[in-house]
Every structure is written in structure tokens, then in C-alpha cells.
Design a protein around this nucleic acid. Structure first.
Lengths: 346, 346
DNA sequence: TTGTAGGCGTTATCAC
DNA sequence: GTGATAACGCCTACAA
């Protein structure tokens, strides 16, 4: 068995074999690989021919050891089970590939300590950069990254209170927009359904956005009008039942994510209510299903794919030493569908 | 700038620094790291103390170069935009972490050639194993993996026609079950909505399952009863409109995925039809939303999380040389909800 | 423009 | 059980 392994490895050509086959020095081969312009075309030809005829591919580990660059970047997301993150990661990965990077992925499960650990693992793996979500990572993360001398980038927020570049929409403004939309429709009695995850600054910002928009119009939101539940459709359903008990007078229910809003709509149907006649419901994210619920959901479009792409572009810029803006606010469009309407007279 | 970098690297302790601090040889430090049981407890103490006081972590690249193991595995999925894959990858990643592996991820966008390329990239990155989806990867993939001497594993199918272990449900049987369920309800006129992706053996198997189940009861499915569309909710909507034109007599529409079924249900509502009174609709996958549509969707539960977990367990077993079964059929449960019912008399 | 040589940080093969 | 020593495969001054 160990013998077989060794045999296999002997079969794999190394840079030196290419050199021999091409009749040049190893250094020259390395040069055509990393800095072709400084080697004469004729020689390049020979070398490239040898490379492809031997089927040579450079050993990543050896390269990384010598160059201190792994051509690898890491990402830590709360979870891949949430569509908006999965989509962003997909876009990030695709774009990173174009830049020649491979993506290492880790998840924090919304746990700050686990997030810190995963970042540590990625750092130890030698990633050239790390993409984070949000702003509430552990305090020592920046120092850690600095120690490894690699750039950090955060996403799904438009600016960070730390010193790292952020790419995303303004969550607070997004929710202010939906809220204002509802106010314009004539609503005055609001409830909010939001997820309870600690260390989720996006959700917190969204909540604040609602409160701010309401306050600007002199509308108060008492604490019992805000219900915090886990992030899931089922939770949204439960939240509606709670709200109907504690504040049935609300004519609009603002949810901080589409999943929750979809739960609210589903439950309202179960309870025999009609959206938006009996109550208006809004979400945030604009996931695929949101345009196809009954009624279709009024929400805010979060540009997950753009976030992922831009993150890839900016991170690879940072890795190669180019500066990028600290604030990258992508537009979050209000998408008005039929789950919101003027409150009906009671 | 290069100076700064060097400074940073000088700060990072290496194994030799630990050795010096602990008053032992580098070899011993390496041993407590990789094979602690062969070193005396007292010495271990010293070394461990030195390790943590210096904050030493081994350099992954150097390790990989010398040991020919990167403690990294790769996965190639069609896309992360499909919930069922995102969920599986999330579970895979979480479990791999417990085994000490980090996950490198790539996507094929349902393109066989791109899949082959991505596999090549992962191989060159030095992954210790690769997780694939389905069975239709390019022919040379196995030879390639053999050349690198790393194990392959495929998922979302219960057995592979290649020689590699597979983990998943039996897609054909799954669809036979839903189909039989509909037949038992009294349906005799069927239509099928399926996605068009080439090289998607899961979808093909699902289609075949429907045809087989129908044939067993002497029911024929003419080609115009099968509509192939892209994978999306919007496509499902379009498919229903097509079917209403070409075969309005069908009382049951079997979809090969939940996304398509949800589209069919959404469009039926738009067109003023009532599911399941006017038509029964079924899906396959059982994604989160499927329990909350109106009506809730009858479907087949695909155990994505279990697939991911088991894939992690089996792949790490394979990497360490333990054999695993080639066939791993996970149960795919029929979930009967309200989108299916007996056909109404016409 | 190209070749030579040394070392990146770790593991593994020897002796002791 | 522990310590020297030689690689692992590639990159990069430096020399030619």
C-alpha cells in the first residue's frame, strides 16, 4: 500500500522533469509559469510543450510553502441553509475562480465563538484572504488577521464599524423604505417579526430601521409589538399567532426577513385571514419564492449575487495590494407586490 | 512593504522555536503534534506548554508538502442556488470539520466540462478527497483521481454505475412512490414537469420512475405529456400554461422537483384553478417552503443533511484507507400533504 | 536571458 | 523514547 502510493507519486512529474524534458533549467520553467514575459518566446515554446506533454501541474503545497500564497480564500457564513447566503457564496465562488482562487468555506451557525474558531482554522490553512458576514465578529479577529498579514472583508452590510471594507446594502435604510411605504399606504399600527439570533447585526439594523422610520412620523412601537423568533418559516407562523394575541390591532406586520414573512402569510391563511385585506405583511431579502407566494410578497431586494461578486473582486484586489473603498453600498430596491395595501376600515 | 511582511513572518513561531523553548528536538515537537502516544507524558507537557505560550500553529503548506496530505477535501456541486445542494454542502462542511478537514468548494453549473475542470483544480490544490454529485461526470475523472491517488465519492444517488461509493436516495423509487400514491387516489391521466439540464442523472432517474410506475399499471405517458423546462419556480409556472394547452385532460401533474411544483401551484392559482380539486400536484425534495405553500405540497423528502453528513464520514474513512460500501441508500419518505387528492368527476 | 544553489517549515528515517 | 538529518517541490537571489 505505501509502495503503491509511492509509485503514484513517482508518476507525477515535477518541475525538474519538465526542465529536463525541455532542456532548460528548473528556474526557467518556474519563470514561464510565474513570469513568462522575462523568458524568450522560443524557450517558452519548448517549455510549454514539455509541460503539456508531461501533463505537469505545479504542486500547490510546495508553491504555497515557498511563496507564502495559497491562492485560496476563506469565507465564514452563519449558515448555508439560508438562501441569501447560499446564493452569495455561489456567486463569490464563481467569481473567485475567475481570479484564480479557490474558496474554503466554513460556517458559524450564528455563534460568535465558533466564528472565531473557524477564522482561526482558515488562517492556519493559509488562506490569502477572508470574507466575513456582518460586523460582530470577535474582537481579536482583526489582530489575528493582521498577524497573518491577510486582508479581511465583510459582507451583507454597507459599512463596518471596524476598519475593514464592507460590501452590501444598508439594512436600516432598506427597512425604513418598506416602513415608509406602509405608512404612505395609511398604516399607523405596526408589529414587527424579527429573528432572535445574537450577534446578528443585520437583523438589529433592520429592526432599528423600522423603529426609526416610525418615530420619524411620530409613531411609537411598544416592545410587545416586536416578537423575536428563530429564523424559519415555521417561526413566522408562530409569531403571527403570538401577535394576534398580544396586539391584534396592528394593520401591518413588518418582518425582517422573507422567511418569516412567508410564515406569517402562510399562517394567516390557515387562520382564515386575508392578506393584505386584514393585514399587510412585508419581508426583506427577496428570495426566489417571494414573487410566487399568495399574495406575492412586498419586500426589499438584497443583491446577494452582486455582493458575492464584488467581494471576490475587492478581496483579490486587496490581496494584490490594491486599496478598495471601505464603504460599498449596493442598492436595495423596494419591491412592491400584493402583500401590502391600504389598511381596511374596521 | 516586503519588509513589513517579513517582519510579520518572523513573528510567527515555527516548530523549531517551540523545540528550542521546550528544550527538545524539532522531531519531538512534531511527534507530540502527530503521534503523541509515542512520547513520554512529562515531555509532552513541556512541549504543549511551549506551544501554547508561543501561540504556535503548524504551517499547513509545509505540512502538506512533506506529508502529502492537505487535510482538505473538495466538493463540486451543480450550483449552490438550489436549496437541496446548499443544505447538503452545509452539512458536509460541518461534519468534515469534526473530522479535521476543511472544505474547498466548486460548482459546475450543470456543465460536464466545467465539472471536469473544477475537479482538476481541486486535485491540483491537493485535496485529500472529492465529493461529487451524481454519476455523469466526464469519463477521465476516475483515472485522474486515481493518478492523484485520492478517493472519490458521489452523492444524491444511491448507487453509481462507476466504481465509486454513492450516498443518497433512490430517485427512481422516490418518484415511483409519489406516482403510485396518485394512482391509488384514482388518477389515470398524468403530466410530468421536469428540468431540462443535460447530464442530470437524478432528474432522468426521477422521470423514469414516473414512467415505470405508470407502465406497471398499464398507463402510458405520451411524450407531449412531459414538459422540460429550466430549474426554477418561474419555469414551473410556464410549464403549467404549456400543459393546459397541450394536455388539459391530465388530473395529476408530477414534478421532478419542489421548485417546479411550487411554480405549478402558484400559476394554477393565478389562472383561477384550485389545487387539488382541479389538479393534483406533487414535487420532490421537500424543501422548507414545501410544507407552507397553499396547499402544502405532497412530495418526497430528500435527506440532504444526512447525505452531507454521511458523505463526510465515508470520505474521511476512505482517506484513511478504510473501505466503505459502494451503495448507500438513504430512505426517501413520501410526505403526503394537501396538493394531492382524488380526481374530481368531470 | 538563463543557470546554480539554498531554503521555505515540516515530517520521516535513521541511529542512539 | 529522543535527537540529528535529509528530503518534500518549488521559488528567487545571485551569478554567469
Amino acid at each position: 500500500m505505501p509502495k503503491a502510493v509511492k509509485m503514484r507519486w513517482r508518476e507525477r512529474p515535477k518541475l525538474q522533469d519538465v526542465a529536463k524534458a525541455a532542456g532548460v533549467s528548473p528556474a526557467t520553467v518556474s519563470r514561464v509559469l510565474n513570469n513568462p514575459k522575462i523568458v524568450r518566446p522560443a524557450v517558452q515554446q519548448k517549455v510549454r510543450r514539455a509541460i503539456s506533454s508531461l501533463g505537469f501541474t505545479p504542486d500547490a503545497a510546495a508553491r504555497a510553502l515557498k511563496s507564502r500564497k495559497s491562492r485560496t480564500v476563506g469565507a465564514v457564513v452563519p449558515t448555508l441553509g439560508v438562501a441569501i447566503f447560499a446564493e452569495g457564496i455561489g456567486a463569490l465562488q464563481n467569481r473567485l475562480r475567475d481570479h484564480g482562487y479557490t474558496l474554503l468555506i466554513a460556517s458559524s451557525e450564528y455563534d460568535r465563538e465558533k466564528e472565531r474558531q473557524e477564522i482561526g482554522v482558515l488562517l492556519d490553512r493559509g488562506v490569502d484572504g477572508i470574507v466575513l458576514v456582518g460586523d460582530r465578529f470577535a474582537d481579536d479577529v482583526e489582530a489575528l488577521a493582521r498577524r497573518y498579514d491577510i486582508p479581511l472583508l465583510t459582507t451583507y452590510i454597507s459599512k463596518s464599524s471596524r476598519r475593514i471594507p464592507a460590501i452590501g446594502a444598508d439594512n436600516g435604510q432598506a427597512m425604513r423604505e418598506v416602513t415608509e411605504h406602509l405608512i404612505e399606504l395609511g398604516h399607523r399600527e405596526f408589529s414587527v417579526v424579527t429573528d432572535a439570533a445574537k450577534s446578528n447585526d443585520r437583523t438589529a439594523a433592520r429592526r432599528d430601521g423600522v423603529v426609526t422610520a416610525l418615530a420619524a412620523k411620530g409613531i411609537k412601537l411598544s416592545p410587545n409589538r416586536i416578537v423575536k423568533v428563530p429564523y424559519s418559516i415555521a417561526s413566522g407562523r408562530a409569531a403571527l399567532r403570538t401577535l394576534l394575541r398580544t396586539s391584534p390591532e396592528a394593520t401591518a406586520i413588518v418582518c425582517t426577513s422573507d422567511a418569516l414573512a412567508i410564515g406569517v402569510i402562510a399562517e394567516s391563511k390557515t387562520l382564515g385571514m386575508v392578506v393584505p385585506r386584514d393585514v399587510s405583511v412585508t419581508g426583506c431579502d427577496d428570495i426566489e419564492i417571494s414573487g410566487h407566494t399568495d399574495p406575492p410578497l412586498t419586500t426589499i431586494n438584497m443583491p446577494a449575487a452582486e455582493i458575492g461578486q464584488l467581494a471576490a473582486d475587492h478581496l483579490s484586489a486587496l490581496i494584490s495590494g490594491s486599496p478598495v473603498p471601505l464603504v460599498n453600498q449596493l442598492p436595495a430596491r423596494l419591491v412592491i407586490r400584493n402583500s401590502s395595501a391600504a389598511p381596511s376600515l374596521r
